[in-house]
Amino acid sequence: MEFLFESLWSAILMILHLDRDLFEALGTTLRVSLTSTGIASLIALPLGFVIARYDFPGKRGVQSLLRTALALPTVVVGLFVYAFIARNAPLGDMRLLFTPAAMVIGQVLLIVPLITALTHAALQENVKLVHEEATLLGASPVAASWKVLSESRHAVVTALMTGFGRVVSEVGVALVLGGNIRGLTRTVTTAITLETSQGHFSSAFALGIVLLALVLMINILIQTLGGRREAV
């Protein structure tokens, strides 16, 4: 128990002292995670919509692949991208390895299947009905698709938050593709790994508490904004 209280106190002190390493890691975590979630949502939301809305040959196979991809180990995704962007790899000249961009690429690959699968699950019950109704009322194909997403907005936001939660807490991609470079690619989770490997367990735990607090604040913010929109 003492260890837990010590960790909590360390977390509070880090925040009060505006610990530079902590805020750099938090900044990188937020920047990379929000960017990858944003890019992934641009791919996964339309993909989830199309899979839910239309019947096509091989649809069941695609659904199975998506479900399988949910179990992708983050390190495997990191290694997969590494194989393309390492110095001697096909995309080596782009010098992406150990940059935030590389981390974003890895994280996008990690959560596109997740957000797609959750979007598909959220939409599949009503998608045909809502799309058809909007179309019959004169909506263009784009407007009708948007209506489908907005009718299931809570489930869609949950899908996005789940994707964000996955990347903000992952360590495999960040470590393999980012390299845990202080001030550049060190995220809260890679910092936790470092502190743990050095035996600084309470510092590692304190970082975990800060990360959870941050995600909680983002969740509350989204819920509040969503609630206000709903009330309008």
Partner: peptide
């Protein structure tokens, strides 16, 4: 019929918005 989220007036407005 499928009614969209929102109130009665908002539902009536959709075809015109579209």
């Amino acid at each position: 019929p499928y009614l969209f989220r929102g109130n009665v007036a908002q539902n009536l407005a959709y075809p015109l918005k579209f």
